[in-house]
Design a protein around this nucleic acid. Structure first.
Length: 489
RNA sequence: CGGGAUGUAGCGCAGCCCGGUAGCGCACACGCCUGGGGGGCGUGGGGUCGCAGGUUCAAAUCCUGUCAUCCCGACCA
């Protein structure tokens, strides 16, 4: 049993904090709401980033970098965009410090002519830039992504799920036609869904946000929604069709084949380090982190077991040959040959850290040409022939990736319910939480009322077909289809 | 930003009510025994008690302020 990890059943929130801490993913830094992502946590992010980046490139995108600072005036150009972000912006007002008796102070003489906003997102600076890049339909589309940090001055924060500064990618594309921009929006949503499932083993529901949940400045916001073990939903990624809102705000026009001047159509899409929080809450258990092999910083750890020096030498040589074989096969493997820790301690620690497969080798294994092979998620122990070890490890990694997705799918299915009445809705919400499908009359008023009374929000109007019309569970007005509700992070 | 809780060694905590030389467990260093699921014994090192003021002969302890964390609300990826 993991020593310092609170059981999920006892306090889910505390469990989440404990796992992050014990698995060495991240820690708090002195400024409220900001965190240090530790090497293990960052390695995880790098693997996620690399997977996504590959998919972005494969769909024709290029990376670029836009500045951290945005002139204050830019934020005000798109009306609903300002409204959405005004309350959570960090503002740079001065450029110098001066020494005082007590240390340093802001130099009042260094006040900036125009104050700078630390980007909460980059639409404004990017569309200001695109204006200069676009003249003709031949300049389109622009398919650009950037990997960056952004700052949103949040009231309440949680490691990975909501921090004041976070890492993300933001794609910003410009198109000649509405159809093309919508297609791009949907394509990137599909990229996110694929990534979530195939890399993170995290099943998601794809859908469209209601108006009240829409991105500030978007015409339509698409999202992937995941269900956590505690029955709460997590918005794991969003893809926005921005229409011509930003093109109009920043006067970005192009001349089409007929010589007409037209406004450009836009999209933006992003996922953040929040995904790591979702990953933790999708797979991990009371013994610590469980992560899909495909994005695990280390996929295999080898633990040598020995008593005397001569045993040590033989075991380490044996272990090293295993390491080489696995590494040559492209597996991320490390040999934990630290002498200051006992095997039992290492076993426990690697489980907390969520390394998918452990290979233990001792003198007996050297003798018999075998190795013990254990999966993190199931804890199943198997004795492998040395000659068949690589095959077994590969099999475990593949199978674990599969099983994690299947288990998570099963959990999501079991955590999804359909209700007909508002009473039933409330009862299910209190008893089980989870995803709840219900009819809704399509009005913001009803949506707000439900949120006010139950704390549940419409996560999305799913994209999959649903012809089952009915009546709104609250007002009884007609509803064309059920929408997805949940309490959310 | 409102309500509640917390802050003492790297981690987990006691001490605070009732002011008087800062403690325990784990971790760390060294030695020996150990080693197939978080070892044992011994000897050590390490703390401006979150920070800043105040009260007092004397403050971890009492008072005020402030910062941070956690939980619950309002806001949000």
């Amino acid at each position: 049993m993991a020593k310092n990890i609170t059981a999920r059943s006892k306090d889910y929130s505390q469990w989440y904090q404990d796992v992050i801490k014990e698995a060495n993913l991240a820690e708090h830094s002195p400024v409220r709401g900001s965190m240090v992502i530790k090497p293990t946590g960052y390695a995880l992010w790098e693997n996620m980033r690399d997977g996504l980046d590959r998919m972005f490139k494969d769909t024709g995108h290029q990376n670029a970098y836009f500045p951290l600072f945005i002139p204050k005036s830019f934020l005000s150009k798109e009306a609903s965009h300002v409204e959405g972000f005004a309350k959570e912006c960090a503002v740079v007002t001065h450029s110098r410090l001066i020494s005082t008796d007590n240390g340093v102070d802001v130099d009042p003489d260094s006040k900036l002519e125009e104050e700078l906003i630390v980007r909460p997102t980059s639409e404004t600076i990017i569309w200001d830039t695109y204006r200069n890049w676009i003249q003709s339909y031949r300049d389109l589309p622009i398919l650009v992504n950037q990997w960056a940090n952004v700052v949103r001055w949040e009231m309440r924060t949680r490691l990975f799920l909501r921090t004041m500064e976070f890492l993300w990618q933001e794609g910003h594309t410009a198109h000649a036609t509405e159809e093309e921009a919508v297609a791009e929006t949907r394509q990137m949503l599909e990229v996110y869904r694929t990534f979530a499932e195939e890399y993170m083993a995290m099943p998601v529901i794809t859908g469209v946000k209601t108006e009240s949940e829409r991105f500030a400045g978007a015409v339509e916001t698409y999202c992937i929604e995941a269900l956590m073990q505690d029955g709460k939903a997590l918005q794991a990624g969003t893809s926005h069709f921005l229409g011509q809102n930003f093109a109009k705000a920043f006067d970005v026009k192009f001349q089409d084949k007929d010589g007409d001047l037209k406004y450009v159509w836009a999209t933006s899409w992003g996922v953040s380090t929040r995904l790591i929080g979702g990953l933790i809450m999708t797979h991990s258990d009371d013994d610590g982190l469980i992560i899909p092999p495909r994005i695990a910083p280390w996929q295999v750890v080898i633990v040598p077991i020995y008593r005397k020096d001569d045993e040590r030498e033989a075991v380490l040589e044996y272990a090293s040959s295993i390491k080489k074989e696995l590494a040559d096969a492209g597996i991320r493997v490390k040999l934990d040959d630290r002498d200051q820790y006992k095997p039992g301690w290492k076993f426990a620690q690697h489980e907390v850290e969520g390394i998918p497969v452990r290979v233990a080798v001792g003198p007996r294994d050297v003798q018999n040409e075998k190795a013990e092979c254990v999966r993190r998620d199931t804890k199943d122990k198997q004795l492998a022939e040395r000659s068949g070890l690589l095959e077994m490890v590969r099999g475990h990694l593949d199978q674990m990736q599969q099983d994690l997705l299947n288990n998570a799918k099963k959990r999501m299915e079991e955590g999804t319910r359909h209700v007909a009445s508002y009473d039933e809705f409330r009862e299910v919400l209190e008893k089980h939480g989870g995803f709840i499908y219900a009819h809704w009359d399509g009005t913001a008023e009803t949506e707000a009322k439900i949120k006010e009374e139950t704390k549940a929000t419409i996560r999305c109007i799913p994209l999959f077909e649903d012809d089952e019309s009915g009546e709104c569970m609250v007002t009884g007005k007609p509803s064309a289809r059920k929408v997805l509700f949940a309490r959310a992070y």
